[in-house]
């Protein structure tokens, strides 16, 4: 990532655009909550979809993940692997009811 003055000034403009997008995303999240989707699954999906876009903007631009070194991606990939494993265990546990031995 090059950090000379011109690049930084370009980045500053990008940060302000991302800031605007995050504000719009927050208002959208609250507005969507008022809409009746007639399904909790759709409501959850829409709310989490907007949250994911906002998270991508913060991580991608404010944390510079859009243009980072390979080692950072490596750390994040292994974190993602274990995080998915953690969630999978949770979902698995929800269907693993204890039964009485006969």
């Amino acid at each position: 990532m090059s950090h000379d003055a011109h690049d930084i000034q370009k980045s500053v403009r990008r940060y302000l655009i991302v800031f605007g997008a995050l504000l719009v995303g927050t208002i959208l999240t609250v507005a969507v909550n008022a809409v009746n989707f007639h399904s909790i699954a759709i409501t959850v999906a829409v709310a989490l979809f907007i949250a994911t876009i906002k998270a991508f903007l913060v991580a991608g631009y404010f944390m510079h993940l859009i243009d980072e070194k390979k080692m950072i991606y490596g750390i994040l990939a292994s974190t993602g692997f274990f995080f998915i494993g953690l969630m999978w265990l949770t979902i698995w546990a929800m269907h693993d009811f204890p039964t009485l031995a006969k």
């Binding site: 070194k69 390979k70 080692m71 950072i72 750390i75 994040l76 292994s78 974190t79 274990f82 995080f83 953690l86 969630m87 265990l89 949770t90 979902i91 546990a93 929800m94």
Partner: peptide, 30 residues
């Protein structure tokens, strides 16, 4: 790596934080 020590350190720390909050989020879902 193209990285200074503290940057590697903070990302490793954030990875552990993801797992900490991830565990609590999975508890919430459950």
């Amino acid at each position: 790596t193209g990285l200074y020590n503290a940057k590697v350190g903070i990302w490793l720390f954030l990875a552990s934080e993801v797992m900490l909050f991830g565990a609590l989020f999975s508890s919430y879902i459950l």
